[in-house]
Amino acid sequence: MSRRFEDARLGTRKAALVRLVICALAILPMGHALAQESARKVLHIDSYHEGNEWNDRIVAALQETLSGKSVELRVFHMDAKRHPSESDIHASALAALKTIEDFKPDVVTTNDDPATQHLVMPYLRNASIPVVFCGLNWDASTYGLPYRNTTGMVEVSPIPQIIRLMRRHARGSRLGFLSEDTQVKRKELTFHERLFGITYEKTYFVKSHAEWKEAFLRAQKEVDMLLILGVGALPDWNLADATRFVEENSRIPSGTDFEWLTAVSLIGVVKSPHEQGRWVGQATLRILEGVQPSDIPLSHNREGELFFNDRIGRKLGITDLPPLARAVP
């Protein structure tokens, strides 16, 4: 272990207990809990909470990939979306570190930025334990990656493609950005502007379902196209209500990169969480076979699918599905 890892152990126990009281974090055995002493161990650090659909699908794909491989997989939820303060996330990271110390995994896997920023970078960087990440948005070098003991899949979104499809039906060029108010989504906004030269006329960062609906209504008058990019941090999000609301109130084309938000968007060019979970599982198996993480190049997600919401389309006077598009149920 690195010196950072050893030094952190001194304060871990107290912080972990505090965090466990605050968040009731679950460390859940996944898949077949193998009794054999020869079974290898993998600990997955989920930056968010169980019930966050994107991450749950990543874990499911990881579990499926490791199934039947004599691997015991456990999951630790940092709950950083619902408890986003620096003190809460720091305490959760220390609790995760304590779990690593107790469980003694052969490989640690992670998803999303908080686990890398608050756990891997300060405590596991260049340590002896291998780390495989996914879900880091746009640029891993933000955290000094890659390290000697890490590899992973960087997550990118097809934002220019979504905008191009929306523009065909827009009355002007003003673009809006509607999302949960989180550090990760603000990071995404910055990279949209930096990488693609996108200028947003209006940005709407919201913290509740009611705020989301209010911002959606404002956007119908203030911009000509609207990107809808994340609601997992909204504690009272109600998809059924949002779907009815959007179908009644849409006046401009909207787009998303999440499949479960195609119900509230005209167009979806969606990423695949299963791709990321599979990649992490496959890289983990290679490492368990003796491959060094540094010998596995960083990757980017490539899979995607086009969706079209006919109910919103009819509201906007659009009747034809784009070529190769899948209709939203």
Rank of each mutant, 00 (worst) to 15 (best):
175 L>Q: 08
187 K>H: 13
133 F>E: 03
171 R>W: 01
119 L>Q: 09
154 V>Q: 05
131 V>R: 04
146 P>N: 13
184 V>Q: 14
136 L>H: 04
113 D>N: 14
158 P>L: 08
162 I>K: 05
131 V>D: 09
163 I>E: 02
126 N>V: 00
115 A>F: 03
184 V>C: 07
132 V>F: 12
130 P>F: 05
161 Q>V: 09
108 V>E: 06
179 S>V: 09
124 L>M: 08
121 M>R: 15
142 T>N: 09
172 G>A: 06
126 N>G: 10
117 Q>E: 15
110 T>S: 14
118 H>E: 03
111 N>R: 01
109 T>R: 11
109 T>K: 11
135 G>Y: 09
140 A>C: 07
128 S>P: 02
175 L>P: 04
181 D>N: 15
123 Y>N: 07
129 I>Q: 04
160 P>C: 02
166 M>W: 10
129 I>T: 07
170 A>S: 05
107 V>M: 08
159 I>A: 07
157 S>F: 15
171 R>S: 14
148 R>N: 03
175 L>N: 03
138 W>C: 12
114 P>Y: 07
165 L>D: 05
179 S>K: 11
163 I>Q: 02
169 H>C: 00
123 Y>C: 04
174 R>G: 03
142 T>I: 13
153 M>P: 01
129 I>N: 06
127 A>T: 04
155 E>D: 13
184 V>P: 04
114 P>Q: 12
119 L>R: 10
182 T>C: 10
